[in-house]
């Protein structure tokens, strides 16, 4: 059987809210090492990769590797019924066709359980190669969200270019053009405002803003987000989930025809 108890239950809610608009149905894979999900969006332009390590759960038991297909919309509906401070426990039998979510209030005065029907989902797993990225910028997650939102009002695509001067986000459209540059700032008073840039070589890539905007729905998960880029390769947008794992998005670039 599978059983996992997460004291910070709202973390699961944040994860599902971050991906449910991008991915409709997905398989959650459970093994003794943890709880993972890999899924492409409907147009196969981006890839979501979630990893929650077993040691990040208060209790984790998985006797047999299993894949649980869920409608993320339905899962979000169920998780919405959990209190913000509730402890969430997931349970599934090896051969069952449901997964149960149990919500316990911190004061232990309210317990509820919701059963979600599992579904058969055909999904192919993609191998994500280890990449030597040319540039990685780590910036406040709220700042990334703001950049994507602001540029979306100007154009549909963004050119992200990393040079020694900083990382520039440029967009253009009917309205005009916009450029936003973030520079390294590791001495900001508050740690949550710090920006760090790791540049091995200059790189510039073009991406569809609607996907980058969608990834920003993960903002509540982490104080910072990292964007890693290499020439002619998908960008990796990485939200670290403290003490547990990560939620990563990969977006294929637009390339000159």
């Amino acid at each position: 059987m599978f059983e996992a108890r997460l004291v910070q239950g709202n973390l699961l809610k944040k994860v599902v809210d971050a991906v449910k608009d991008l991915v409709t149905d997905a398989n959650f894979d459970c093994s003794s090492s943890g709880f993972t999900l890999q899924a492409m969006d409907n147009s196969h332009v981006s890839l979501v990769s979630l990893s929650l390590r077993s040691d990040g759960f208060e209790h984790f038991r998985c006797d047999r590797n299993m894949s649980m297909g869920m409608s993320l919309g339905n899962l979000a509906k169920i998780l919405k019924c959990a209190g913000n401070d509730d402890i969430v426990t997931m349970k599934a039998a090896d051969d069952g066709d449901t997964v149960t979510f149990m919500f316990e209030s911190p004061k232990e005065d309210r317990v509820s359980d919701f059963e979600l029907k599992l579904m058969d989902i055909d999904s192919e797993h993609l191998g994500i190669p280890d990449t030597d990225y040319a540039a990685t910028v780590t910036l406040p997650a709220a700042e990334y969200q703001r950049i994507c939102r602001d540029l979306s009002s100007i154009g549909d695509t963004v050119v992200i270019s990393a040079t020694k001067d900083g990382v520039k986000f440029s967009s253009s459209g009917d309205v005009g053009t916009a450029n936003i540059t973030v520079r390294q700032n590791t001495t900001a008073d508050k740690k949550e405002e710090q920006v760090s840039i790791d540049l091995k070589e200059p790189v510039a890539l073009t991406f569809a803003l609607r996907y980058l905007n969608s990834f920003a729905k993960a903002t509540p998960l982490a104080s910072h987000v990292s964007l890693s880029m290499a020439r002619d390769l998908p960008v990796m947008v990485d939200y670290q989930i403290s003490d547990m794992g990560h939620l990563r998005f990969y977006l294929a670039p637009k390339i000159e025809d």
Partner: peptide, 14 residues
């Protein structure tokens, strides 16, 4: 013009 690549053209199926 720019052409949108698909993610599976970069990451092969396992």
């Amino acid at each position: 013009g720019m052409k949108q690549k698909s993610i599976s053209s970069f990451f092969a199926a396992k």
